[in-house]
């Protein structure tokens, strides 16, 4: 059973066709890069997987079923923005996640936060943007999910934080789960990707194994991408 399957997926916003005829299958145990420039449809595709919007035509299936309560149990989603209730303390947000997600590992989260010098009594309000983003990443990666979807996890973050984020992603990798990383900063993450999906103007342009692509083109994924989407 494939983890994610899109069949003839279309999404329109009014007259604007944002996704056209998406047909992809993402298996378990892969780290997949969803690569495209801003406005290419990456975030729309991710929202469809997360049941935040509904398809105009076609379907997206998570473990063979339409997105719903059951798919949300196994998907751990890190959106691009700060989505936590700022009035909460770290301990309260940990309790929140543990209440709603049976696969949430509170001890692991506390450990990871400690490494970042964040204590459970800190208030989210008092944290810098970068720290908030790290907290969100820790929360997402502390779940034992089947599918992790990270939307621009390293955008707007300093290099040390970037390394921390990539490290955290790698150390949490387990072969029964997959990770989809959506980003436009390709050179920073390409070395951890198994597969890459190029998306442009709402269409899938390429879906290939990263190393295969490098062998074929003798270039980095970043270089291949830039060439393909030169203005």
């Amino acid at each position: 059973m494939e983890l994610v399957k899109c069949n003839g997926l279309y999404k329109d916003y009014g007259f604007k066709k944002v996704l056209k005829d998406i047909n992809i299958t993402i298996p378990k145990g892969r780290i997949v890069g969803l690569l495209g420039s801003n406005g290419s449809g990456k975030t729309t595709l991710i929202k469809l997987m997360n049941d935040l919007i509904t398809p105009t035509k076609g379907e997206v299936l998570i473990n063979g079923k339409k997105p719903g309560v059951n798919s949300k149990k196994i998907i751990s989603y890190l959106p691009e923005r700060t989505y936590l209730n700022m009035d909460m303390k770290v301990s309260e947000i940990l309790e929140y996640f543990s209440d709603f997600y049976s696969d949430f590992d509170t001890q692991k989260a506390i450990k990871l936060l400690k490494k970042l010098n964040i204590s459970t009594t800190d208030r989210l309000k008092t944290m810098s943007k970068g720290t908030k983003e790290k907290v969100q990443l820790v929360l997402v990666m502390s779940r034992k999910a089947d599918l992790y979807i990270l939307d621009e996890p390293i955008g707007g973050v300093d290099p040390a934080a970037r390394d921390y984020i990539l490290d955290t992603i790698l150390t949490n990798f387990n072969k029964d789960a997959s990770i989809i990383i959506s980003t436009h900063l390709i050179s920073d993450i390409e070395r951890i990707l198994d597969d890459v999906i190029f998306i442009s103007n709402g269409e899938i342009v390429l879906y290939e194994e990263a190393d295969k692509l490098r062998k074929k083109e003798k270039k980095s994924i970043d270089a291949i991408f830039r060439e393909m989407f030169k203005c």
Partner: peptide, 17 residues
């Protein structure tokens, strides 16, 4: 705030109806 703004990303992806 909880359902329609940024927090909505968390609320609407919770495994609840």
């Amino acid at each position: 705030r909880n359902v329609l703004k940024d927090e909505g990303y968390l609320t609407n992806t919770l495994p609840v109806k």
